[in-house]
Design a protein around this nucleic acid. Sequence first.
DNA 1: CGGGGTGTGGCTTATAAGCA
DNA 2: TGCTTATAAGCCACACCCCG
Length: 612
Amino acid sequence: MAPKPPHKPGPPIQLIRRIDYLAELLKHLPDSLPELPAHESTYHFGLDQELVEEEGTWFAFNRAFEVGFETHKNRDGARLQLRERGKNLNGVIGLFKQAVKDISPAERELVRERVDVLVRAAQDAGARIPVRENRIKRKASSMLVETKRTKRDDEEAQQKDAEITVLDDSDCDSDSDSDKATGSVSFVRSKDPLAEQTHDNMSPISIDSSSDSDLEPVELKQIQRNARELEEMRKEVMQDEEQKREAKAQKQKDAARERQRKHRAKTQKERAASRANRKDSTSGSTSKKLILGEVRDEGTSKELTDLVETSRPGSQWRANRNGKLGGAVHGKQKHTNWYHPFLWVHIDKAAHKTLWSANEIVKVLKRDQPELFGRLNRGTVHHWFAPGGRGWSEATKQNVARHHQLARSGRVGILKAYPRVVEKITAKLKDLRRSGLPVSVSLARSLMLAIIKSEKPDLLKTFKVSEHYVRAFLQSKLDWSHRKGTRAAAHIPENAPEVCERAFFRAVYLMKEYDIPAKARHVLTGNSSTYHERGAKQVDIVAKDEKRAYTLLVASTPSGSILPFQQVWSGSTHRSLPVGGADGMDEAHQQNCNYFGMTFSLRATLDFSAGT
DNA sequence: CGGGGTGTGGCTTATAAGCA
DNA sequence: TGCTTATAAGCCACACCCCG
């Protein structure tokens, strides 16, 4: 599966809450500020879409903000002052909310500053949120306190870190912001009496012995001992915290599991109940409604109850292996293979119709074909989408193309860790096929054994390269299947006896040189079939019986006279042509001297036609 | 402001390939 | 044929939006 692109995080909730708080403040500005009609107001906030496209959201936001509030006119240090209240000013909230969606985290920080400026301006102008709306106020003001405290805490922490260098550890950087904000127990904060003592008694200390100090050796030793103890305590605390975190994570996991278990139990119960209901609701008004089509009888499509199983390509696997010889018994299949062509055709249609909304797709499908899509989940549909949402992902397209997932996966099992070996094997196999040699399992196995032996001989201690593995390799890695040859790849050459003799002596030489026993020889029998690309139109193969066939074109004029015949032959060399001294060639020339001719095509597999 | 609907990430489980 | 593994299905929860 292609890796998912990193998800772009949305604006932080704190920022949204802060903007909401500002909105509340702006709503409660005092009446002393004028509320101007739109044409008199200078507050016109909105993201100019053209600017957004040309310069980006951040630029467009800044421009709108500046044009509205004219902060450049304020003298140094002067606070922003609101000139009016009402609808026009409130438009700035929309501007903020629109902008924070599309900008970077760093830019969001700057937006946060702008919000703070406006909050101060509103407070300066006398905005007060009434008590009855205290919920938001509490929330927001607590945030104010929180942020202030965060800053202060951070500064303090930094100071302390600077002072007690022995405690300065990169691990401490990983302390979450929330920890800092709440001032929770963290070792750096020097809540520890020992640490405080150290802090009170000594000025900057460092475990680094190279630091020049005027301290007496005894004092130095004491400090170093303290430092070590501190270090140990720090480690203990860290470990403790780590354990707590793990325990918490585990607890959350358990809770989630329990929730899911309960949910499943509930749905099962509901299903059972609905089945029971269906059984005894076949009479009276329900039957009438059924006949009239007012309600849908979900119990009538009995054959569809096995949809899940039917949609799965590997159901035979279960039938063949399930529970045999005391083996494991797998339960009924539960996952539907939605890539099944009969299902996917509806899904694809619905997707285009609903403009790629997972929720809509599922709704439409469930409404139109509840028997088929009653169990389809919108989350599942969502996972099929390409990044961006409109269209299917590449992985999905591939799954649809092969009607299910996983097959032709390219997996090579034990050889996965040795891509070089795999590459060598596939290259050799492809070369063999290019030359037209039939590739059988035994040939492929010998080849693989030879390559593995030379590259990674250790593997062969346990790995047998079984024929089963070889078949799987050919299928998984090369997408080859067992094919019948369709076309002769080459003919027996003129110098065949000579070639055979050379091959014979080469074999003799090898056997003598490497002491190869005679029984190790293996003669590949002539074979009219081979492993070859699945679905290929032509399967070239050597030693295939030559087809003696040609195409004869018979044509006539509109008036009915028969034209000279045209024969179309095929061959791969000029030797396929009739030679000048062929039997009957003179006769042909004498009888049809006006008509006899040859034409060649320049294709790899030559076609030539002869008109007589 | 609350309720319902929607989009989406992440967790758990099922499936089938792969290996010994 | 038992066990392992990669990937998809199934499901939930959270954030956000819209509407009355």
